[in-house]
Design a binder for these strands. Structure first.
Lengths: 196, 196
DNA sequence: ACAAAAAATGAATCATTATTCATAATAAAT
DNA sequence: ATTTATTATGAATAATGATTCATTTTTTGT
């Protein structure tokens, strides 16, 4: 078994366990059991429990970024680009519920426990939105007075909160795609230049 | 010293300690020290550590709801109402940074640890937004096709994410009020009926 | 086939801390 | 002043679980 396989096996096990129990209530032995390795083995691949979380975060966000950038590659209409981003973001939940829950958790916890951890991958992910907005302004599609830096946070926050609800609710009212479209619609109308 | 005083002393101490260290890293003895009571005393007022968090959440959200409902009382324009809500929400941060951080944390953690805790106070808080939207639709200000249930989550999520950034960043780019106005502006344009 | 290196194991360690409860201090009642 | 009830104390308990490391297993190179 290649080294990277075991690394990945542990990461995947950690996603499951963190999602099920939360970071602090997850035991290393739970992760070890889920990954079918010994407790000690985990320490050959990660420095400590927190390192598992960080590393997982970086890796998985990295993959998401790659995928969404690929999807956006051949689209030039900034309105459509926002929709692609939103739909992709929400559909992650359908495919990887556990992962989304862990990422949401991580996002809040990094506040407290590693102020020094700059979270660059996350920033890269949301900067995709501000880039879209910026380009939309240059091409005259979007209003000049909106701040891309605010839109990116607001858009992400809206999607994130909606997905939080979704993962909590037993039987959701709306489909994820409807939700993504609704939110996109609001933001599109919110920042587009009105052809009065 | 009245009973309620000690209860409140402990709550306030807990807010400080939770904000500083996070829920799981906060020790009961930290809270006791901060509140200037013995460790055991805390258990005369709360069932356990988690109960402190829940109880704090309910109490403090309760106060916030009262205040924002009061502010909204004499306003009828739904566009303005959204702005009042947003500005009040963001200005909380200025006045009670610690509290906001704890509430944000709690919101994420309740996912995992008390699925049964229905979080009714929080729902009451965000339902204020869906009420505004609903009324705005009835009065013909807002587009019929937007879903109040989506707007409330999106609007809250946007504000919440923005405030998360704010509390993390050493020297923020924007003032809180500007931010609140920007986000409100996007949502106002996003859902208002266009007078074409 | 053997030696050396690398990877994996999991029981033992060791620190940590939420909670309890016997005791003490304080307040209220008579 | 004395009893009773209430409130507070903080040391002791008891469980927990992250991390280490001596030992074993597997892989690699010759």
């Amino acid at each position: 078994m290649r080294v990277s396989d075991k690394h990945q096996k542990i990461t995947q096990a950690a996603v499951k366990v963190f999602a099920r129990k939360g970071f602090f209530n997850a035991r290393i032995s739970d992760i070890a059991k889920e990954a079918k390795v010994a407790d000690g083995t985990i320490y050959l691949y990660f420095n400590n429990k927190y390192d598992i979380l960080i590393s997982l975060f970086e890796d998985e966000i990295g993959k998401i970024i790659l995928k969404v950038k690929l999807l956006l590659e051949n689209e030039t209409d900034p309105l459509k680009m926002l929709e692609i981003y939103a739909i992709h973001h929400m559909s992650l939940l359908q495919d990887q519920k556990d992962l989304v829950e862990v990422l949401q958790m991580e996002l809040r916890q990094s506040n407290k426990f590693i102020k020094e951890y700059r979270n660059t991958k996350f920033i890269e992910y949301i900067d995709i939105v501000s880039d879209i907005v910026h380009k939309g302004q240059q091409s005259g599609h979007f209003r000049q007075e909106v701040m891309p830096g605010v839109v990116k946070r607001a858009f992400f926050g809206a999607l994130d909160e909606m997905s939080r609800l979704w993962s909590l609710s037993a039987k959701p009212k709306y489909t994820l795609e409807d939700t993504a479209r609704q939110i996109t619609d609001i933001f599109q109308h919110g920042i587009v230049v009105r052809n009065s």
